[in-house]
Amino acid sequence: MEITEIFKYLYEQLAASGLPQVWVDIVALACAGVIVFGFLAVVALFLVWWERKVSAHIQQRFGPMRTGWHGWRQTIADAIKLLQKEDIIPTLADRPVFFWAPVIAFVAAFMAYITIPFGDGLIVADLNIGILFIVAITSFTVISLLMAGWGSNNKYALLGGMRSAAQVVSYEVPMVVAICSIVLFAGSLSMVDIVQSQAMIYQWYLFRLPFGPIAFIIYIIAGTAETNRTPFDLPEAEQELVAGFNIEYSGMKFAMFFLAEFINMFTVSAIGTTLFLGGWQGPFLPSWMWFLGKTLFLVFVLMWFRWTYPRLRVDQLMEFSWKFLLPISFANLILAGLMKYSGWFNW
């Protein structure tokens, strides 16, 4: 039985139970929230383990090996350890700001999944502003980083927070323009419509030459920068800033930042899959498997970047975004418009 049918059956049971429609919708939404939360928690734990394994194998090591098969229980042990740790708040910290920063980071990372289609019909809400909603809601991440940097009352944290805010704001612009070229071609902001406009593999936006691959490369580069990962990991450059914005955080609050970071990485890959790789569409296997497979492949690409490239300097970082990526993405948007208008590759 397909997952969608199970959900549909449960929803119908709920609707038949005699509750008013409002409460049926609210209960269904709450359940969806819990399911997505559980899924993301497992994904984040898995990604932490996978990152360690990928990095280890790239550096000709094995990584965690002792807890379970190839160390698969390692992150579970680490998570339990983090939960038990003492929650240290610096004496001179700005307490409310210090407290709310990880909460906002986590909620912002989590909210994006309202409009991500996990499979055929597996979506919490198909908003007609879909992709724009995700772009808007993830901008709260910047606020949380600035709050963490400020609230910690630590110069390394402050520097890290400011660097990361500057970086995220700069790279958001080419990213949104690259997304715009896809929206222009699909003629819709809804994630479901965008997926359905690329039913066959030659219809994937990645393969719509010449604008598709360019938009994809811009998206992946900007996405790496948005998630503060190497080669754009200046906000937490270990050699310069010790750990960056989260230096004063410990225990559960640190874990929330850490989980948010990995969920954001998964979000960037999931959006990349939806926009460029045909989303959940593919032959034979169930749709959610295709979605998960493609997304995890993109996650792997991001990890591959991290353990291959050296870090950029801060002036190079800004110049790369404003003087290189942005003009290219604008030219690409115009190109996409011309292609759409002339009907070239418009199958």
């Binding site: 724009l132 808007a136 901008s139 606020i143 805010a165």
Partner: peptide, 19 residues
């Protein structure tokens, strides 16, 4: 668009100026 422009850009700019 309100969230994108005001929360994502304008207020970040204000916080930057303060910092």
């Amino acid at each position: 668009v309100q969230v994108l422009i005001y929360v994502g850009a304008v207020s970040v700019l204000i916080i930057f100026a303060i910092m």
